[in-house]
């Protein structure tokens, strides 16, 4: 049961590493001074507000991904997922016809 053994091993190491982290913050607390710059958001030499520091959803994963796969998405979203029933029916019936043809040809019936 390889899953169990790797899980046990992963669990042990995780505990060990997390314990080390807890030990580290315990030790450092005793001699480190609390830094005062923590509450400030500092970017490119300018202080910005919290609202400015947020990213909109469309900037998150999709910008790069969208650009690289632009042709794919253009056809997927613009031509297929249009929200118009006629377009949908076209693709759905295409599927039906293809299924039908595959069954007729591969099944070798109707001859």
């Amino acid at each position: 049961m390889v899953v169990l053994e790797t899980a046990v091993s992963m669990f042990i190491i995780t505990l060990l590493a997390y314990g080390l982290y807890l030990y580290s913050i315990k030790v450092t607390k005793s001699f480190a001074k609390e830094s005062k710059e923590k509450p400030l958001i500092y970017a490119c030499g300018e202080h910005i507000t919290e609202k400015e520091a947020l990213l909109a959803d469309r900037h998150l994963f999709t910008t790069i991904w969208n650009e690289v796969f632009k042709p794919l998405y253009d056809s997927l979203r613009g031509k297929i997922h249009t929200g118009i029933l006629n377009d949908w029916f076209f693709w759905m019936f295409l599927a039906l016809i293809i299924a039908y043809t595959i069954i007729i040809i591969l099944g070798g019936v109707g001859g």
Partner: peptide
């Protein structure tokens, strides 16, 4: 904790 999991 996530880092510890990754090491594990």
């Amino acid at each position: 904790f996530l880092l510890a999991l990754a090491i594990g």
